[in-house]
């Protein structure tokens, strides 16, 4: 018997080792099952997504023609295009980002970099978290009460954008705060040790290093601004306004609300089925392309900043 054989033979017979191998096998089985479960749930999530998107794309694709994109809705919205809704939605997204991003970033910088730790800061942070989870219809009612009833603005693109801005601001604040906190403290020290003031450090080092996190916040916000209907329902979006919005003070049509109207309140729901799918597809495409742009910007920054 060779040495190796003898060795493996002994291995097989040693009771302690045998017990160890049994435990090892049990652990392996356990691990395999866990992995399987994880894989299954991931697959379920992705599959659902594929089904939804696939359904919308397949059924909406035939409806989306150049005409559909460039014409006004006609004949009580059972025919024609969705041009004013597309423009309205894009303007709404951009305007609400324009209000929420600067304010949200400033608030986040103040809270992470300047505010002293304590009860007040804690309370404000909790408030922001709560706001981020508040149902959108409440924002809609609040926007109406504040901007229309109290301040006296008209039902308009501006009012709707401000309301939508309020809705996405907590998201911007949260993500920016997290991005700021993730900036290593070494950068702060290095900058301060060179004689930079706190503000110079934030402006030139910390904020640029946090861009990528900030853009993630913007991506989430774009989706919400495009999709939420309740906040604009009471504040500016209208059922039918077959004119392109000429100023921020005029009412407007939005894809999300248009879709809701087509699907629930139109004269003949069956007749507009393909229009509904078309509208949903366009909405999806707008959100997707805006996210693509944001992700491109994020990649550009990441490339510029780090090694890979």
């Amino acid at each position: 018997m060779s040495y190796e054989n003898r060795y493996s033979d002994e291995l097989g017979q040693d009771p302690v080792l045998k017990k160890k191998t049994a435990r090892r096998k049990k652990q392996e089985l356990y691990q395999k099952t866990a992995f399987l479960l994880i894989k299954l749930s991931a697959a379920a999530a992705i599959l659902t997504l594929i089904i939804i998107i696939g359904d919308i794309v397949l059924k909406g694709y035939p409806a989306v023609t150049i005409e559909f994109l460039t014409r006004m809705p006609v004949n009580q919205m059972t025919e024609g295009g969705i041009l004013p809704c597309v423009i309205g939605t894009v303007e709404l997204i951009l305007l609400s980002l324009l209000t929420a991003v600067p304010l949200g970033v400033i608030a986040a910088v103040y809270m992470t970099e300047y505010a002293a730790d304590g009860k007040i800061k804690c309370a404000v942070e909790e408030a922001v978290n709560t706001l981020a989870g508040t149902p959108s219809v409440i924002f809609g009612l609040f926007g109406m009460a504040l901007f229309i009833k109290y301040i006296g603005l008209p039902q308009s693109l501006l009012t709707a954008s401000l309301t939508m801005g309020l809705l996405i601001m907590p998201v911007i604040i949260r993500t920016t705060q997290e991005a700021l906190l993730a900036v290593p403290k070494e950068y702060r020290e290095a900058s301060r040790a060179l004689g930079a003031t706190k503000w110079e450090t934030i402006r030139c080092v910390i904020l640029p290093a946090a861009y990528s996190g900030l853009i993630t916040g913007i991506i989430i916000s774009v989706g919400r601004a495009a999709g939420e209907t309740a906040p604009i329902l009471f504040t500016g979006a209208v059922y039918y306004y077959p004119k392109l919005p000429d100023s921020v003070f005029s009412p407007f049509m939005a894809l999300s609300y248009h879709l809701y109207v087509l699907a629930t309140e139109s004269m003949n729901i069956e007749l507009t089925r393909s229009l509904q799918y078309g509208t949903a597809l366009v909405l999806l495409a707008i959100v997707f392309s805006m996210n693509l742009i944001a992700a491109g910007v994020r990649r550009h920054y990441k490339k510029k900043l780090s090694s890979n």
């Binding site: 070494e186 290095a190 900043l305």
Partner: peptide
């Protein structure tokens, strides 16, 4: 510093 800390620039 102990750990090299170049800025991400």
């Amino acid at each position: 510093f102990q750990k090299a800390n170049p800025f991400p620039m």
